[in-house]
């Protein structure tokens, strides 16, 4: 196992501390994220997923517990927050809220200017970032943000954070609100980025099919507690448990169950379509 890039130790979080409305939403989480892996965080709504994400780039600083990113404690007052936030790029749930300038180029430049990149580098960096997410820089450089489609906005938002040359990518429900084609495109570009740049990727998703396609490991977060953290095969074998948390199963897993029910002997550990195809061909050939 490669080394941990993020360590979370006994992390608690409460909203409205010191008021009658106080509510604890994270109850002592401890886990590690390994260098270069793709970790999916899955859980029903209100389970604390988005809250947890905001600890990774020090938008939240732990009051109780510790978060260590790249061997630096986020609680440390000497910590260079800007540098940390450059290293840990975050894509929020609604891409429109991450874009706040008029044109694509201006928006991508926002982060670069904050990080004091020299003027002459900025334009090249913007073009490179646009190319990385698969947008033609001639077409998009001067486009107005409001003329973009949802998928394009998401890509521009990613370009905005990739321009900062991060090491860790954090995505909050990245495929929500995308059409089927947009979703496939998006997943592919995340995979591509991960493979090409070796980014550690942490993403929250409500779509189990995304999880199967993307994740190396899955964390199941329910009511602010980690119920399971394991490789996808070991997670999706526990069907009843997942359903009892109010989660759904990936389409392939549902299909496997149906096949088994109708007497076709496929392995119940199968979670993705390629494995299923392979084992079905095997069964067809042997009969």
């Amino acid at each position: 196992m490669s080394k941990a890039i993020i360590k979370v130790e006994n992390l608690f979080h409460s909203y409205m501390q010191g008021t009658p409305f106080e509510k604890e939403v994270l109850h002592g989480l401890s886990f590690e994220v390994y260098h270069g892996e793709k970790l999916a965080i899955v859980g029903p709504t209100q389970s604390g997923k988005s809250t947890l994400l905001q600890y990774f780039n020090a938008i939240f600083i732990p009051k109780k517990g510790r978060v260590i990113v790249d061997e630096q404690d986020t609680k440390d007052s000497r910590l260079n927050l800007k540098e940390l936030r450059r290293k840990v790029a975050m894509l929020f749930q609604h891409p429109d809220s991450q874009l706040f300038k008029e044109t694509v180029a201006d928006d991508i430049a926002f982060g670069l200017k904050n990080m004091n990149f020299p003027e002459e580098v900025i334009e090249i960096t913007i073009k490179k970032a646009l190319a990385t997410v698969g947008l033609d820089s001639n077409e998009f450089f001067y486009r107005y943000i409001f003329s973009l489609s949802g998928g394009e906005k998401k890509k521009v938002a990613i370009a905005g954070i990739l321009a900062l040359n991060p090491e860790i990518l954090i995505l909050d429900d990245p495929t929500a609100g995308l059409d089927p084609k947009g979703r496939v495109d998006f997943l592919n570009s995340i995979k591509f980025l991960h493979d090409k740049l070796g980014l550690t990727t942490i993403f929250v998703s409500s779509n189990m099919n995304d999880v199967v396609e993307l994740a190396d490991r899955v964390m199941i977060l329910v009511d602010g507690k980690i119920e399971m953290i394991d490789i996808p095969e070991n997670i999706f074998i526990k069907r009843e448990k997942l359903l009892s948390y109010g989660l759904t199963l990936p389409s392939v897993v549902e299909l496997v169950d149906e096949l088994i029910k109708s007497g076709i002997n496929v392995d119940e550990k199968i979670i993705n379509i390629d494995q299923l195809e392979e084992s079905l061909i095997k069964i067809l050939n042997s009969s």
Partner: peptide
């Protein structure tokens, strides 16, 4: 909404 915008800007290095 304001909080979301602020967080998005902070995440990209705004102080």
């Amino acid at each position: 909404e304001l909080e979301r915008l602020m967080k998005a800007q902070i995440a990209r290095g705004a102080d």
